[in-house]
Amino acid sequence: MAGSLPAGARVTCVDGDFSSVVAPFLARGDLHVRQVPLEDLADAVAAGTDLVAYALVQSATGEVADHAAVTAAATGVGAFTFVDTTQATGWLPTDDLHADVVACHAYKWLNSPRGAAFASFSDRALAELTPHAAGWYSGADPWTSCYGPELHLAADAHRFDVSPAWPAWVGTEAALAFALEHGIDAAYRHDVGLANAFRERLGLEASDSAIVTWPDADGDALAALTAAGIVASGRAGRARVAFHLWNDEDDVDLAAGAVTAVRAVDAR
């Protein structure tokens, strides 16, 4: 999308979003990139905006964007919309986004090997975006169009396909079967339920996200979680835990106990 924008195009992004959602536009050097807080994103879409790009679920905070409001604002001014669902697809339903481009790396909540990713394109995106990475796999039937001299592009979204990392897709097929077996709605109820149980134990407000983060500038909470055998992470000065299908109430108790224990020590 960054390569298809004309020089001087105006792009609105989220301040603090994952770098991969913002960096391609900044790297162009000739685009006007505005970054605003997530809660202000829809209101920041004004006449003259060419593209709104954001992650549906913020990596650093777990916040969920109001995609309906953003899409309505973008549609009102004729702007493209790009939504990254890497931190969402797998636990949060994403079939009602109505964005021009939706992209998702499968190695997060879809539990796939790194190297598999998905994207969907609106009719407008198909007509106006240039497939800069076009290659042998961009044809409707790659095996009959893998030699020149003509440019062979599929009429549909396959024109944006790149040569697949074969081993990654073998693992992805099995991972998708696992995800479909349980269903996104069930995953949402389970994951968010555990996350809210953990939030309650920490004195945090309930949320609609499976990701929980809180300030941890010194890394004490992350160290305590790690010492307890919990795989957690530190992001932007915050501790971060995420709950998925293989987690249960015992994990909530273990994580909450580790954090509350270190809080008690810090209080002394």
Rank of each mutant, 00 (worst) to 15 (best):
K108C: 03
A177P: 00
A23K: 11
E205P: 02
A79C: 14
I211Y: 00
P142E: 11
L180T: 00
L151S: 03
L225V: 08
A73K: 10
C146Y: 02
G219S: 11
A227G: 10
E181L: 09
A236K: 15
D40S: 15
L204N: 00
G229I: 12
R201I: 11
E173H: 01
G115V: 03
K108V: 03
A155W: 15
W136G: 00
V64A: 05
L194Q: 02
T260A: 06
F82D: 04
L204W: 05
Y188I: 00
F121T: 06
W214G: 09
T86Y: 08
G48M: 12
G115Q: 06
A116N: 05
V259R: 10
H182I: 05
Y137Q: 03
L97N: 11
E150C: 04
R124Y: 13
P6D: 15
D253Y: 02
P24I: 11
Y188G: 01
Q35M: 15
W214R: 13
A42N: 14
G203H: 09
N196A: 01
S209L: 01
F18N: 01
P164G: 01
G193K: 05
A140H: 13
A117Q: 11
A264W: 08
R114H: 14
D100L: 12
R240C: 12
G257M: 10
T85S: 06
G183A: 08
V101P: 12
E205M: 03
